[in-house]
Design a protein around this nucleic acid. Sequence first.
RNA 1: GUGGGUGUAGCUCAAUGGUGGAGCACCUGACUGUGGCUCAGGGGGUUGAGGGUUCAAAUCCCUUCACUCACC
Length: 371
Amino acid sequence: MSDFRFDLISGGPSGPRLGRVHTAHGAFETPAFLPVGTQAAVKTLSPEEVRELGAQAILANTYHLHLRPGSGVVRELGGLHRFMNWNGPILTDSGGFQVFSLSELRTLTPEGVTFRSHLDGSSRFLSPELAVGIQEDLGSDIMMVLDECLQYPASFEQAAASLELTLAWAARCKEAWRGRNALFGIVQGGAYPELRLRSAAGLCAIGFPGYALGGFSVGEPPALMYDLVGATAPHLPADKPRYLMGVGTPRDLVEAVDRGIDFFDCVMPTRNARNGSLFTAAGTLNIRNAAHAADPAPIETGCPCAACRGYSRAYLRHLSLCRETFGLRLNTIHNLSYYQRLMAGMREAIAAGRWTSFRDGFRAAQTAKKD
RNA sequence: GUGGGUGUAGCUCAAUGGUGGAGCACCUGACUGUGGCUCAGGGGGUUGAGGGUUCAAAUCCCUUCACUCACC
């Protein structure tokens, strides 16, 4: 019997939804943003800090952890939760994104993917069954089926073939799944609404505890992604969570919640923080810009995060230019704080029945930034 | 004091008579199921100073200044 359950508190097959995802390691409120901890660490932060910033669940990666330290090591040490000292829900990506991001290093067959390890060049095979087995070894609460994350642009024929492969892999993953945790299917189909619906229907026929939308933010225009998400979401079961993989910008999150998405993961707040790009309600700022050289103001006035409470832009710029690790930490704390507060704001707006004004206010601020 | 060497972008250095460049630094931008990486643009010069030779001088000649090494 699985410990996984989704309670839809408000909303339906489309439009903004409020919910709660329950797992063996606790629950998280949706709409939610999951910080990315690919290698069993949210870069630069401790699990306690990630928790304090408001994150209730995080993401880790099957492919990376399988290569190093190895899923067997993690299993022997009591699973990912104990290994990294994070006792909340963990979602693991299957390695499907590495099919895309490491496309130079892999060959794809109906059986699975053969990677040339980016660490030592050795050959590593990943099949749907192995991906599930590794994720079970890791002990993740939400596992993802192995999929092919298709590049953009792709022809209709390419997207159709890719979709069929992912669908066949999804069926094999479900077959291999022992049912102790959750397994999510992944909708593919490129930029073709017709194929997205075909993919969604195929996955629903197999049946999963939750559904993800994959293959986005790979170079397509944002408006195209919004249209595709809006077209696909209503065709997924209303009582199952929807997860938009690898997305996105603050604007992406608001637009996707508006179209019925429940949760997200993205490297953007953490990676951009390390590169000096910081998110604020007034837009993004690059802390390395000379304009901040002697600026005593915090990143964002009124922000409750530790970086804004104690440190000036001038100091953060200095740390960033010096490449001090403390600067990476403070920037990451701010960006994750911003993302978590954005999600909390969305949940409150939906719960209070003022989603439309929240959304329109956000859009207006976005437009104002461009002028 | 004598003899030698070196003076070119913020720094380290290319360019041996024919439109003064590179790396780093600096300044902007990008980053979406993670490489802290990387990538794309940009600003920068009276070639220490002054004079001469030449169609043409960073480059050859003279003077001078600075730095540096060796020797009195």
